[in-house]
């Protein structure tokens, strides 16, 4: 079976074919979404904060903080001079392409691009029990009252390095998880295994974007 177009470039594309007909998931059930085909882009170097600000982005005030952008994207500050921009969950690519083009054209001093599309897989875990589920895999306290919107952490999850950030979703608690693309399949399986006791399961990106958790049977 061919994967759906939005997953063609994902590291997990071969695992996504089963999702073309998502099974019914309770409205408060946990879902795991593969966003690896969505754009993302990083920059580092001591000129980065000023340059990004000049391009109209809202900058996080300190390292390990994430700031939502006007277009729905999320800008993560990984260290003093390193940033990572996640595109909005909608179909647009936000400012990723525009920033990449502008950096290549302007060549601002001390700003170096870090392409993340091929280096990192991007997963989203969402649902009322998301924090309880991640507590099984990660030592950082990710409960919503301790790890608020705007917090992000660089830590281990199931013993592999990840970047984890709170996702600002309308209904439920959600977490963006970025890991090395080489361990994407391993982490995907670990998360599915950890989710099993809470119900729910993997969900197609398009179905998630349209808010469809409980599709009508055909």
């Amino acid at each position: 079976m061919n994967p759906s177009p939005q997953h063609r470039r994902s590291f997990l594309a071969h695992r996504q074919a089963v999702l073309t007909a998502p099974k019914a998931i309770a409205p408060d059930g946990l879902v795991l979404v593969d966003l690896s085909a969505r754009p993302r882009l990083g920059f580092k170097g001591r000129g980065t904060p000023a340059w990004l600000q000049g391009r109209g982005l809202a900058l996080p005030g300190r390292p390990n903080e994430a700031t939502p952008q006007a277009d729905g994207g999320l800008l993560l500050r990984l260290s003093e001079h390193e940033h990572l921009l996640l595109a909005p969950l909608s179909e647009t690519d936000g400012q990723c392409q525009a920033l990449a083009t502008a950096q290549a054209r302007e060549r601002p001093d001390h700003v170096y691009p870090l392409p993340r599309q091929d280096s990192h897989a991007w997963l989203l875990l969402a649902g009322a029990a998301a924090a309880d589920c991640l507590a099984k895999l990660c030592a950082v306290d990710l409960r919503a009252d301790r790890f608020g919107l705007g917090d992000m952490a660089q830590t281990l999850m199931a013993r592999v390095s990840v970047i984890v950030a709170r996702a600002d979703l309308a209904e439920h608690c959600g977490y963006h998880v970025l890991c090395d693309s080489a361990v994407a399949e391993y982490l995907w399986d670990c998360l599915l295994d950890a989710m099993a006791e809470f119900g729910g399961g993997p969900l197609d990106q398009a179905a998630f974007a349209s808010g469809l958790r409980n599709p009508e049977p055909p």
Partner: peptide, 8 residues
């Protein structure tokens, strides 16, 4: 940079 973390 990251505060108190597990030794691992």
């Amino acid at each position: 940079l990251n505060g108190l973390r597990n030794a691992e």
